[in-house]
């Protein structure tokens, strides 16, 4: 279990409001973070990214909204070679899911569509593997087939005792997988993060 408490001492501000709260990441469970548009959910994730070594125990994997755009013609296959030294563990399910991106595994990442780019990011995260997986709006740009794949992937990760944290507006698709919901909301001068 990874318990993260954000207090006034952490001095974490989003949109001129100080964030306070607590969130728990449990192995084998999926946590959903929800909140209004523009409240700071993605900013919270960026904060966790910068402070991951001091705030969280365990290896963290982040798959956020930004598009992967290398300057050169790097493909997913080439990117795997770059990431190999940083691989935390070889997940047995990785090769099961890699087959779905085989049609564009050699294509320069910069030339992929939005949905393909999203799948690449997810697969890179899976390749690296970790203890806690963070996904920011993972379902955007994905077609029905890839959405179904991603939901199966989440089930597989949960079975392998990985903690998962998702920021997603579309709760409907994830409803059967969510274990806990956390809400980010404005409370006076503060931004509060707490379980629903």
């Amino acid at each position: 279990m990874h318990k993260l408490t954000i207090s006034a001492d952490d001095d974490f501000w989003i949109n001129e409001k100080q964030l306070l709260g607590e969130i728990v990441f449990t192995s084998g469970e999926l946590v959903l973070i929800q909140g209004e548009n523009g409240i700071g959910k993605s900013s919270f994730l960026q904060y966790l990214k910068r402070k991951q070594t001091s705030l969280l125990k365990g290896k963290c994997i982040f798959v956020d909204q930004s598009r992967v755009m290398p300057l050169n013609d790097l493909s997913f296959k080439d990117a795997k070679k770059v990431f190999k030294p940083y691989q935390f563990e070889k997940l047995d399910i990785y090769s099961d899911y890699e087959q779905y991106i085989l049609p564009y595994i050699d294509k320069p990442i910069g030339q992929l569509s939005g949905g393909q780019n999203q799948m690449i990011k997810i697969m890179l995260g899976l390749y690296l593997s970790g203890d806690i997986f963070f996904f920011d709006e993972p379902l955007q740009f994905l077609d029905q087939k890839n959405k179904k794949l991603f939901l199966e992937l989440l089930t597989s990760l949960k079975k392998r005792d990985k903690a998962i944290c998702i920021i997603e507006h579309n709760k409907k698709d994830l409803a059967h997988l969510i274990d806990t919901c956390f809400n980010l909301e404005i409370s006076g001068m503060y931004l509060k993060l707490g379980a629903i």
């Binding site: 990214k49 994997i61 982040f62 992967v68 755009m69 290398p70 790097l74 890179l124």
Partner: peptide, 8 residues
Amino acid sequence: LGSSIAQG
């Protein structure tokens, strides 16, 4: 691959 991935 992007500052976001590197930071992650």
